[in-house]
């Protein structure tokens, strides 16, 4: 079972290398001769490595066993979505309000047990202090223009 999982992963990596390389080469037609040398070289490296992995899987299936892991995909997805929304909302809602909210949401996601109201309040206050402190440092000391 573990061997199958490992080979499945290797096959995904191989297909990724081949598809990405092929796509990158297909985009080079509009480039100048010198401009396309490097992207084509990089693409060929990816394709060759991908084909090498596939050949290895087919001809010599000696994959190392890897421990099967249980991944908390829900938590990972929530965290990734929070980070993306955080990045995309900075311009629209401003640096301080967006960051203060996102910091609290990340704290809630990273907690294994349900959080009490007091705990959420504590994290919110600490988060606001962190965000306001750094915002001051950025805008007043480092002269970075915040959204």
């Amino acid at each position: 079972m573990n061997r199958l999982i490992d080979q499945w992963r290797q096959a995904v990596v191989a297909l990724l290398g081949i598809c990405l390389g092929a796509f990158a080469i297909s985009q080079t037609s509009a480039m100048s001769e010198l401009g396309r040398v490097f992207p084509i070289t990089a693409s060929l490296i990816s394709i060759a490595a991908g084909l090498g992995i596939l050949a290895k899987i087919i001809l010599a299936p000696q994959a190392e066993t890897v421990p099967e892991e249980r991944i908390d995909y829900l938590r990972a997805g929530l965290f990734a979505a929070t980070m993306l929304i955080w990045a995309l909302s900075l311009d629209r809602f401003g640096f301080v309000p967006t960051s203060a909210c996102a910091v609290v949401v990340v704290a809630v996601i990273s907690r294994r047990e349900p959080m009490s109201k007091t705990s959420i309040l504590f994290h919110a206050i600490a988060g606001v202090f962190l965000v306001v402190g750094f915002s001051f440092l950025l805008s007043e000391v480092l002269n970075v223009r915040l959204p």
Binding site: M83, W86, A87, L90, D91, F95, S99, A102, V103, V104, V106, A107, I109, S110, R111, M115, S119, H123, A126, G127, L130, V131, F134, L138, L142, V144, R145, L146, P147
Partner: peptide, 22 residues
């Protein structure tokens, strides 16, 4: 619960601060 949000915030600050670009 404190470390993850603090580091997440620092990554946002670090990526933004270089050119003030969201």
């Amino acid at each position: 619960t404190a470390l993850a949000p603090a580091i997440a915030f620092l990554t946002i600050v670090g990526a933004f601060a270089i050119e003030a670009n969201t």
